[in-house]
Design a binder for these strands. Structure first.
Lengths: 173, 173
DNA sequence: GCCATCATGTAATTAGTTACATGATTAG
DNA sequence: CTAATCATGTAACTAATTACATGATGGC
């Protein structure tokens, strides 16, 4: 169960409300893990019961800001250094890419264009994050992650374009 | 639910038993989707009920080989071209990479070495697959996927090495 | 005043994991 | 003859999604 550790990790970086965490899952962790608010709120309650997070502030709209406790930080560290890694992945997009060859060239070209557009959207999001980070004083711990995302995105774009060329060859215009 | 379409896709590539499908999920689809036999067998039964796969042969050890039907192929095509993509990912390894900066340099170096070793193992598996494919006559539809995996692996290796260098700087030997 | 967004929760269902269970075949 | 691997299944539990539900605040 990575949800717990993803939440602890995000809170270890910066205290946040459940709502903010949900947004971070869709931005910072978009290429790693997904969780929606209906999972996040119960998990925060469980982590609080376990003494791994605590409420450090209440704001407007009865929002609560959580921060990780020492126990939570220790659990997170333990998981990072000792926890045996689960290398399993679930990525529907990757499944689609894997099966694209099954499509007729015309359909395949359309699908590839759609994937290129999605890559562009992802890159735009990453570049936005990069700019935001770079405009901040000092260095930000997420900066290397953004960089990795951009580099992987480049490799994927190149691959998609190659597949598109190949689909053009045997399918006409 | 991508399980259904991953199974249909694998069977569309080549008829297989449930046992063989489980192996394919861990090899061909290792970087895309995971499913274990306790999910695969019930799903095959459901797909058969729905007329999307059929038994095309029985072998030793009461094994059954399934193949995708026309209805299954149509469902697969529909999903690939029309189905709106779920871009969510679940990748525990990516979560770990994302949070590595939280570790002390010494711990971080150990974690990075471990990840490099895992990348090497993954690369070895991909190279094995590539060799197997290349020794076959004609072209194999999975070949481009293997290539993508190798390229992404290279980018990741470079990134891990950079992080390792950075962790060396601020943490001594 | 009202609409968008912030903010939090729970219930019902579906998906996925882990554990339990059994038997057939083959290689040594 | 026996251990490893092939091969299939189900049951109990946990994780995740989808749908339902409510209310606060700020900007216009």
């Amino acid at each position: 169960m990575s949800l717990r550790h993803a939440v602890l990790g995000l809170l270890a970086t910066q205290p946040a409300t459940g709502y903010e965490l949900a947004a971070k899952f869709d931005r910072s962790l978009a290429n790693a893990w997904h969780a929606s608010h209906s999972q996040i709120y119960p998990e925060l309650a469980k982590l609080q019961d376990a003494g791994m997070v605590e409420v450090v502030g209440e704001g407007a709209r009865r929002s609560r800001t959580y921060a990780v406790t020492d126990a939570g930080r220790e659990e997170l560290r333990r998981w990072l250094v000792e926890g045996d890694a689960n290398r399993h992945q679930r990525n529907e997009t990757a499944v689609r890419w894997f099966l694209l060859f099954l499509l007729e060239p015309a359909d395949r070209r359309r699908a590839l264009e759609r994937e290129l557009a999605a890559l562009d959207a992802n890159e735009a999001m990453l570049r936005e994050t990069a700019e935001r980070i770079d405009s901040l004083p000092g260095s930000h711990p997420f900066r290397p992650n953004v960089d990795l995302g951009l580099r992987v995105g480049d490799v994927m774009r190149t691959w998609l374009r190659e597949q598109l060329d190949a689909a053009g060859d045997d399918g006409g215009t």
